[in-house]
Design a protein around this nucleic acid. Structure first.
Lengths: 198, 198
DNA sequence: AATGTTACATACGCCTCGTATGTGAACCTA
DNA sequence: TAGGTTCACATACGAGGCGTATGTAACATT
């Protein structure tokens, strides 16, 4: 039961670094961010960085995991409020699109993340989120609501479509207008999985 | 008339640099590639690089444009061999997935490209490819084959789904098996756009 | 209280990028 | 064809940025 003050402090410095990184990575991008500046911004030096996260990539990984976790939690919360499995799946997809409108998510999770850390589906958090979608698809399939196809393939294509929709929206001048179109198209595509048309 | 030998030589060096960059970028990634090494690899120095492409990003842009152009051409060729508009759209989508299996395309066009150059839909070539898909969707819509939705939204979601499918396949150990599942799921989703089920 | 541990700072070397300047060959002119 | 000019590329230089090796002071253990 000792070393409590120490680990508390360490947790705080980790938090400060991650928080600063979220802001700066989102603004200037990963490559253009100097770790000297980043650490100085919160009154530290690179020493703290390399001790806590190993290297620059490690910091990005921590940031990505944090954001990704928040996204998964939010999507799950939205999905749980739906009346049935299908609506929940749709609601999660739409929520995913909406979340990806935040510059933080765009730049860090969708652009720099994959380039620096590699295939997103290997990340722990992303993997969890996808697995949840896979299970939802499997449930709906077992209920005969959607056609028998590979669940993982379906989940990945859905999330891919949502992701790309978000990128499109963010690059556009009228996000709200485009969001409506994107959501409509997303629902339309997703209905291709339905065993019986509404 | 004049300066023919000179511009011929310059075209050759540009070609050598782009060719080398395609290989090295695909292997080690954009960030990890040294321009000193890259240029030395074809018997040049960085002087040639900065003269021809302005900076490192300029070289990546040239590489991306070349690959993207090849992809668009291939997709168009595949699509033109189909009997009808719908089959052509499906064939192009599948072709897109298959092309994205090449490490070159994955690493350069799908990972580093967006991170370094920004939104892919702004790139000249990618934009052309997308526009072609949009027009195909509009045609099918005019024929009453697919439901009336926003054509650009549909095109973007389709290409997004295809893109993500490719990333999935490439990260997998059994590409051929997964390819089949992905293509099946892609067709399934796309059929959501059909006005009348087959 | 003495010793070990650790969280972070400091200091160093290596590499890479971009620019500024040099150079020799190809080009135009007469 | 001879002289000057242009230009494609090489060389030289300076400015960071990353990662590591080492230092240090606060904390923990006994």
């Amino acid at each position: 039961m000792a070393g409590e003050r120490r680990s508390k402090m360490m947790e705080e410095t980790r938090g400060k670094l991650i928080s600063a990184a979220r802001h700066v990575f989102a603004e200037k991008g990963y490559a253009a961010t100097s770790m000297d500046d980043l650490t100085a911004m919160v009154g530290l030096t690179r020493g703290a960085l390399y001790h806590n996260f190993g290297d620059k990539r490690g910091l990005l990984l921590a940031v990505v995991n944090q954001i990704d976790g928040e996204m998964a939690a939010h999507a799950a919360a939205v999905g749980s409020r739906a009346d049935n499995g299908w609506d929940a799946l749709m609601a999660e997809g739409v929520a995913y699109i909406e979340m990806a409108l935040k510059p933080e998510v765009q730049r860090i999770v969708l652009l720099d993340g994959p380039a620096v850390l590699g295939d997103p589906s290997q990340w722990p958090s992303q993997s969890n989120c996808l697995q949840a979608t896979v299970r939802k698809v499997e449930d709906l399939m077992a209920q005969g609501i959607i056609k028998p196809i590979d669940a993982e393939a379906a989940a990945r294509l859905l999330s891919g479509a949502a992701l790309n929709a978000a990128l499109w929206i963010a690059a556009n001048d009228h996000p709200q207008d485009v969001l409506k179109k994107a959501v409509e198209a997303f629902r339309c595509l997703a209905e291709g999985m339905l065993a019986v048309r509404n």
